[in-house]
Amino acid sequence: MTDSPLDPVDRRIVLATQAGLPLVERPYHAIAEAVGIPASEVMERLARMQRTGLIRRIGAVPDHYALGYAFNGMTVWDVADDDIAEAGARVAALPFVSHCYQRPRLLPDWPYCLFAMVHARDAGAAHALVAEIAAALGPLSRGHRVLFSTRILKKTGLRLAG
């Protein structure tokens, strides 16, 4: 995946679709009308944004919380710099991990450089998932924490300002 800058037309498409496609028979035509380009170009540009990685996927986005996945656990792992690529690949391969990122280690406050999100319906299920990650990492993990979300204070999703 290579980063490609958003040209002004891509940007208008992002703005017109980031809250969702309209639930009408021809949603891309509706977007095309709003953006002022042909529908074929909307579909081509969305396909290109998928290829370049700007768009991860296009489809129905379930709300974990509404479906009862109330336990959102941010698991954080202390992994040696030399092991991070291997550790990231192992954790990312677990089907229940919804995000898996390397972030900076900020010593002394923050030794954890590998982040993996898990979602479960109760605390027991969440801890079972954490145990699976720990097993996948084995000795690559030098320590970990699970930070459950106790309150959502703001959640608006990605919004590109118009």
């Binding site: 992002v14 809250a19 768009i55 991860r56 296009i58 709300d63």
Partner: peptide
């Protein structure tokens, strides 16, 4: 969507690229 179990139908953007 009205029941809130689908947040939307559409593209999921990689936040760090936009």
């Amino acid at each position: 969507s009205g029941q809130g179990v689908v947040s939307r139908v559409g593209p999921v953007f990689a936040a760090n690229r936009a």
